[in-house]
Amino acid sequence: MSAIAKLARQPWIFAFVAAVAVWLATAAFTHGQGAGGVLSVAFTFATFFVIVAIGQMFVVTLGPGNVDLSIPATMTLAGTVSMKIMDGANWMILPGYLIAVAVGLVVGLFNVALIRLLRIPPIIATLSSSFVIQSAAIWYNRGLRVKPPTLLADFTTAKIFGLPVLAIIVILIAAVMHVVLTRTVYGRTVIAIGQNARAARLAGLDVGRVRLATYVMCAVFAASCGYVLAGFSGGAALNMGQEYLLSSIAVVVIGGTSVAGGFANVPGLWGAALFLFLLVTMLNTFGLGAGVRLVLTGLIIITVIVIAGGSRANAR
């Protein structure tokens, strides 16, 4: 009994409960037809959301005003650059990935440099850099759509027992990041900064370096997502990152991470990503269009923040 009560108190549980509920509703509507397939597809698409959301979650956890708006541009740039350099050659898969990571590193450092040197809020820094990055991607790509190496494309769509290989890898990555968040000095410092940056400094924590590492890490995750997404969808497109800007924040918030910072959880990201995708599927199955889906998504985000924000206020 107490185990159930404890489970119910976990902040990530609601996202999973909602995801399961939506899935069951869909399955009920179709009388169970294709329910397994829907789940498999959901895992595939949720994977991409989770990759970027992990980075965004660490950034958001740094406290109010911290959010990375350059994620879509970074994805696009990393995707285009790596696809073009690999030029479809299978032996280039690993070097191509390293190039994507390098793009992420550069973008992250650029963001931090803007925040530090110009002393501007992260939101404006990442916004301005996103313009420049997006432009670089457009210039580099020149409208060409280079096909990914066949092995990469196969890899991103491969499945084991109906579960996408990519999803399994990202579940493992999420597990590792969960440990990083809760059990390393770095993770603890991120959470401490988000709760009270001044207290974190006065407790002797290295606030500056951890902030830097977090923005760089977020950009690297975004770049990695751009790489695999380009591989998955048959090449990089200039608008491939578009929907990930708002979605990455939405997944973080619905997953139970506090937007005020200082409280994060990784499992919730999976729940939220699955929920968002299954919600789309359900509404499509019901024959409702994109409009209703978007309105519902927005209302859910606001409801979550009103409930979560309220509980945080009471805790003080």
């Binding site: 000095v185 603890r188 709760q195 009270n196 207290a199 506090s258 200082g262």
Partner: peptide, 27 residues
């Protein structure tokens, strides 16, 4: 200046000694 309001007593207490609390790479 001091409290991390969302944390437990133990987490608040140990935050300045994280280095010493590590076993290997993990706390």
């Amino acid at each position: 200046d001091g409290a991390f309001p969302l944390w437990s007593i133990a987490e608040n207490l140990g935050i300045s000694s994280l280095g010493a609390l590590r076993r290997g790479r993990l706390i």
